[in-house]
Measured scan of single mutants.
Amino acid sequence: MGFKLLSKLLVYLTASIMAIASPLAFSVDSSGEYPTVSEIPVGEVRLYQIADGVWSHIATQSFDGAVYPSNGLIVRDGDELLLIDTAWGAKNTAALLAEIEKQIGLPVTRAVSTHFHDDRVGGVDVLRAAGVATYASPSTRRLAEVEGNEIPTHSLEGLSSSGDAVRFGPVELFYPGAAHSTDNLIVYVPSASVLYGGCAIYELSRTSAGNVADADLAEWPTSIERIQQHYPEAQFVIPGHGLPGGLDLLKHTTNVVKAHTNRSVVE
Rank of each mutant, 00 (worst) to 15 (best):
S191W: 14
R110M: 08
S38Q: 09
I84V: 11
G240S: 03
G240P: 04
E157T: 12
K102R: 13
P190T: 08
I74Q: 01
A111I: 04
E233M: 11
I151D: 05
G89K: 03
V212L: 06
R263Q: 15
S223E: 00
F26E: 15
G105N: 11
Y188E: 00
V265N: 11
I100S: 03
H241V: 00
R206L: 15
I186C: 02
D248Q: 12
A90M: 09
Y188R: 00
R167T: 12
I20P: 07
I20T: 12
I224G: 01
Y48N: 11
T36G: 10
D214G: 11
S139F: 04
E99H: 14
V256L: 10
G43H: 09
L143R: 08
T93E: 00
G246Q: 09
T109N: 12
K91M: 15
V194W: 01
H180N: 04
L173W: 01
F26A: 12
I58R: 05
S208L: 11
P176L: 04
N211V: 09
G246W: 03
T114Y: 03
F26G: 14
H115R: 03
D216M: 06
A66Q: 15
S181P: 04
T36S: 13
P170N: 15
T182D: 13
A165I: 12
G65V: 07
E99L: 15
P221G: 09
G2T: 07
A87L: 03
S139Q: 14
V171Q: 02
S7D: 07
A215V: 06
P244R: 02
S7W: 12
T93Q: 00
K4S: 10
V166W: 05
R167S: 11
A234V: 08
S223M: 01
F26D: 15
S7N: 10
L106Y: 10
T182R: 13
S16T: 14
V37E: 15
L143I: 07
G78M: 08
S56K: 08
Y48M: 15
D119A: 06
L6Y: 15
A95Q: 12
P69K: 08
A25Q: 15
E172G: 03
A94N: 13
V28C: 06
H154G: 07
R46A: 09
S181H: 00
A129I: 08
M1G: 07
E33Q: 11
C199D: 01
K251T: 13
R226S: 05
I50A: 06
I40W: 08
I227H: 02
R206M: 15
L159E: 01
R46T: 07
A178W: 07
P170K: 06
T254V: 14
V112A: 07
L83T: 02
P232T: 09
Y175T: 01
L97W: 02
I50N: 06
T109C: 06
W88F: 03
A136F: 02
G89T: 04
A111L: 06
L6A: 14
Q235W: 08
T36K: 13
A51S: 10
A133T: 13
L217D: 02
L5V: 15
D125A: 09
Y48A: 14
V121R: 02
Y12E: 11
L106V: 11
T60V: 15
A25L: 12
S155W: 07
G169S: 05
E147K: 14
S162H: 14
R263A: 14
S139A: 14
I74M: 06
Q103I: 13
G53D: 15
A111G: 08
L73E: 01
L106I: 12
Y188D: 03
V194G: 01
A200P: 01
I151R: 04
L195R: 00
L159Y: 03
P190M: 07
D77A: 07
H117T: 00
P244T: 04
R128L: 09
A165S: 15
N255W: 13
A87P: 03
L217A: 05
